[in-house]
Design a binder for these strands. Structure first.
Lengths: 120, 120
DNA sequence: ATACAACCTAAACCTAAGTTGAGGTCAAGG
DNA sequence: CCTTGACCTCAACTTAGGTTTAGGTTGTAT
């Protein structure tokens, strides 16, 4: 099954211009085009997009994602680099979660304090 | 105990210019100054900074934080608004954590796939 | 035929969150 | 004295991550 840019945007809750911007930044080197020039996302492209968004949503800058994408296109030689990058990202995300949980606790304490103040 | 901007920067792992920028954005209306004009952070300021950073680190934009700070300076009339804002933020952070955990899982699956590919 | 919807490009524009640089004040130490 | 370090202001600059605009093509429905 193939998808247009508009469909992909809806599926992933992105804007069309965002997808075009990512393409221009080199994040979709695997994208095909129709004869008239429209971008075509196939199932593989959607699969790949998923991991790209995953990296983006955990705070990886676009140029680093591009590095990963470029490595992915070069073949098996770069498997070690890609693995290393994902492991680094895993560590980063684990820290993110811990930090965010700490901040959650602080916010909840603030809520409790505010509620106590309001009752007085 | 009082602290200079440099000390506060070190304690909280921020740059001095970041702290000055926040002050210019109106995030520190409670800040005192020495006669020569240097910013003085007292214990209360540090306490307040902690909650400000907590909001900032969970993705709240500076102008929203300023709203919260402004409310905090006005007295008890704004307790309900502040409470509501913190509750909204709590919800946002809970979602953040869930989303990040999902992304973590995907990254870990990617790691597993890459490791399988490398063994072949 | 024509109008509309969905796609395209290239370039300009925008916003948030800072950083940098020039020029200045003050206190302490050698 | 004078230099060094830590602070100050104000304005200009930067960067990332987009959005917007203007102008153009194509396919389908009226």
């Amino acid at each position: 099954m193939n998808y247009t840019i508009g469909q992909v945007a809806k599926i992933n809750h992105l804007s069309i211009s965002q997808l075009r911007y990512y393409d221009n930044q080199g994040l979709f080197p695997f994208l095909k085009r129709t004869e008239k020039g429209d971008r075509v996302f196939d199932e593989d492209a959607l699969k790949f997009l998923e991991i790209i968004l995953c990296l983006k949503n955990t705070g990886m800058p676009i140029k680093d994602i591009k590095q990963f994408v470029d490595w992915s296109m070069t073949g098996e030689d770069t498997l070690p680099q890609r693995l290393e990058m994902m492991k680094q990202q895993e560590i980063k995300v684990l820290h993110q979660i811990r930090d965010t949980e700490e901040n959650l606790t602080k916010i909840q304490q603030k809520i409790a304090r505010l509620e106590r103040e309001m009752k007085k």
